[in-house]
Design a protein around this nucleic acid. Structure first.
Lengths: 114, 114
DNA sequence: TCAACTGTTCGGAATTATGGAACTATTGAA
DNA sequence: TTCAATAGTTCCATAATTCCGAACAGTTGA
């Protein structure tokens, strides 16, 4: 399900992050400390449910995030500590780049007004 | 051919680096300041020529490296400055992770004894 | 002139991505 | 309890990528 910290592969992680939608998911997740539900995270991204499910699976299997059932939702959290321990500075560099140049994320980021 | 610095996309770069062979190519390239030929870089990696060509194309189109004809070779160089300017710390974090845990690169790295 | 070398392109087979539809499980309300 | 709504997954078919062998083009050195 979730790979152990020692089993994280850099190529897998980079591959998982090498998709605009998944990259966006990670930046959204990075903004919340206690996680969020899949559905809320992808709100505003124009992606079919089946595809959402696929993207979260890729991120989970790469070890980028953890998913924990919470009622009828899946609480999704970034595996910050594991990533930092294994690939120091990587996540920060990526998040910082996204923050500095938001146009890096080529998405119609119509965030539903909560 | 080669994307301009301002056109580099983080997702594209991460995608390009999210493959064991391409990641290995980049670490090899990082070790040489003045570049190298495709053929020499992939020496020891068990990949068909057509696939090599494909991998270099992906790296080139993502803006990770530059290719410059040099006689009957292609001189390949890492676009360190462009990557650093656009995504500060990213390349260093990746290279450092590869260096720290060489097993990250799941390749039979039989480097031909020069 | 021509064979060897370096790399690209073409064609097909295998893998992966995407989305619609049907499904499971949980919740909250009647 | 019953049932509709919500949150995700799975199945299937289509589209796009990946990988390789083979044929190709350009450069070099004999």
């Amino acid at each position: 399900m979730h790979p152990a910290r020692a089993d994280l592969s850099l190529a897998n992680v980079l591959y998982a992050l090498g998709d605009p939608i998944r990259l966006k998911v990670v930046t959204e997740l990075a903004a919340t400390e206690e996680g969020d539900s899949c559905q809320h995270i992808v709100a505003g991204m124009n992606v079919a449910k089946a595809t959402q499910s696929h993207h979260f699976k890729v991120l989970r299997e790469a070890g980028v995030l953890r998913m924990e059932p919470q009622g009828r939702r899946l609480l999704v959290r970034l595996r910050r500590d594991d990533l930092e321990a294994r690939f120091p500075g990587l996540l920060d560099a990526i998040l910082h780049s996204c923050q500095k140049n938001p146009e890096i994320l080529p998405l119609t980021n119509e965030k539903a007004p909560v």
